[in-house]
Nucleic acid binder design. Structure first.
Lengths: 192, 192, 192, 192
DNA sequence: TATGAATGAGTGTTCATTCAT
DNA sequence: GATGAATGAACACTCATTCAT
């Protein structure tokens, strides 16, 4: 899971941040969890914020990689469906990271990587909406606003899934699958 | 605007938090903005977190007050439309508070008042969905999940409106009105 | 000796810095010596460097005060003699501060107050030389260079006095008196 | 210029220390400038301080070498003149080292090599004064104090020369030649 | 009630030094 | 000898909170 030391530290940071939040996650604790010394962190990251930036950067890249793998000419709705399913599957496999993506985004929104994450995700959804409209598959709408709305809805569905998992203990895979389905239905009715 | 000293401090805190975020908003800065001394803050609030809790508490109460003013037998979609219009109007009148509701919510989600705000808002939307389904005005769905999705979408629309205002300088009233309309359209298609 | 808390901290800092040098003088140690907590230091000084700047500032002001008390029309050599006697008397009364003026000056020469101290002292000596030349009491010379040389000689004499005191244990008053005399003789022959 | 690796590191250290001062000159930076790795430094020097000690040691040896080349029976004043000329010529050729000799001396005065440098230089000047007095070429005086004063004056003249060079841009050779002349005149009048 | 100086635990970051390769 | 990743002690500085006035 941690091919190299930078990844090792990233994983440790994710765990500690999930437990305590970014501000309460001390560099000492991250180092201890990673089994390295504090100094080592600074061999791989400029400072503490850079760890969080890296976390978002990595997640953004994963999403971009997935999205660019979808064939250009696939019906827009289907792209959306696949993306939602993939997204929730990833969350189910690594809920800790999912939680960070939710929790720390708002507060540290000034960090470039985090802005970048939000904006990239939103603009991908926006571009999907535009494509759908252009191809006559979606009704006309303010695409930018719609993309933003969809991103918010997506995150809320993730958050709700994680909370439902914590409350009920039902398998996270099932919960997220259902959320993906429900969200897709919600979107497909709204957009068409 | 600040009937008593507690309100005065609440307003000052809102302004400072909007400028810097909760963690960077020192009690000294809040006191200075309020024109009182640090010590005075502690006569009205248990600690710094309690200020934030109070901010959310007050906003929650405003929303509850508005919602209970809607007649019970009004069509559900109309209730939703009125609520959205009212909500965006409030944001347009006091965008600072709106920003706090967005920015600080995630990070300090463990504070009871903040959880309470989120949960109350979500459960109001959930209950609207349930009412719609029960009365045959909405299609069947997982109401809790749908409520959560709607809350996320609502916040995202607010965030997008504020950012659009900052970027374009268009009057916030117009931006929020359009957002309210678009969001209502989005919801009404999804739900029916 | 320490009228107010800022002075108290200044005195404590002088003692600790004399013992260990500026870089090894931790803020904790200064606070402990002053009998206050670390935080209190920062109520009176911007940062650690500001303490050193303040030390030099105070000493510079003392010297300026003394120098401006000398009558304008006094023979230049006599002004020089009085200044040397006063300077060495001050050192004898507060050798710790004298040591700081010597030891820390070079290393932290970029701090404004320290540059200011050196430059002010040097330019006072330079102006004395210029005055002497103008009034026909001194031979012609490069006044700026001569002033610099005199400042260096003065500091070296102080340093030598303190070291002689440490080695021999002779009363510092006697050592510095002799140094003042010898230095004056040295200067008066050089300058005329 | 760097016959072996130890010299290479010494030169690199001189450059970095001149740029930043000893405390801000990290071993990493010195290693980088020398084109070696940190570890290599520790094959040639016990620790970081030892580099500075070595710098002073080398400079001291150069001065001792020069001084022992002067014929024993040369008039004392002429020895002094030649030494001053030589010293300022060396500074003009390698101002970086000159700056270190000035800047770092005071602060790290506890290092044996640095004490040694100061004391050797001072005691050479002292022995010149004693010789002059013994041979009836100088007036009577406290030779040790006079030697110290002369060392201080010498350093101040060097410092002033370097600063004048930085401010005016005049050729350093000319500035130092003039300083050597002026300083010699200053000394010869004082001593006789 | 109001004040604001004093507190001191807590934390990000640096950097000389080591040592396995 | 040479390397440079890893180490971890050390330190400046912050800021929520208290309490004597």
């Amino acid at each position: 899971m941690a091919a190299n030391k930078k990844d090792l530290i990233r994983q440790a940071a994710i765990e500690v941040i999930v437990d305590r939040g970014f501000h309460a996650a001390t560099t000492d604790a991250i180092a201890a969890r990673a089994g390295v010394s504090v100094g080592t962190i600074y061999n791989y990251f400029r400072n503490k914020e850079a760890i969080l930036e890296h976390i978002f950067q990595v997640e953004l890249e994963r999403r971009i990689d997935y999205l660019s793998s979808l064939p250009e000419d696939m019906p827009v709705l289907q792209k959306l469906e696949l993306f939602l399913q993939w997204h929730f599957r990833v969350i189910a496999q690594d809920p800790a990271t999912g939680r960070i993506l939710l929790r720390e985004r708002s507060n540290l929104i000034n960090l470039p990587a985090i802005r970048g994450y939000m904006e990239s995700m939103t603009s991908y959804l926006t571009s999907l909406v535009e494509e759908g409209i252009r191809k006559g598959q979606f009704r006309r709408s303010n695409a930018a606003l719609t993309g933003a709305i969809m991103f918010g809805a997506l995150e809320a569905a993730v958050r709700h899934s994680i909370m439902a998992f914590e409350k009920t203990g039902r398998p996270l895979e099932l919960i997220t699958q259902e959320a993906a389905r429900e969200l897709f239905l919600f979107f497909s009715r709204s957009l068409q």
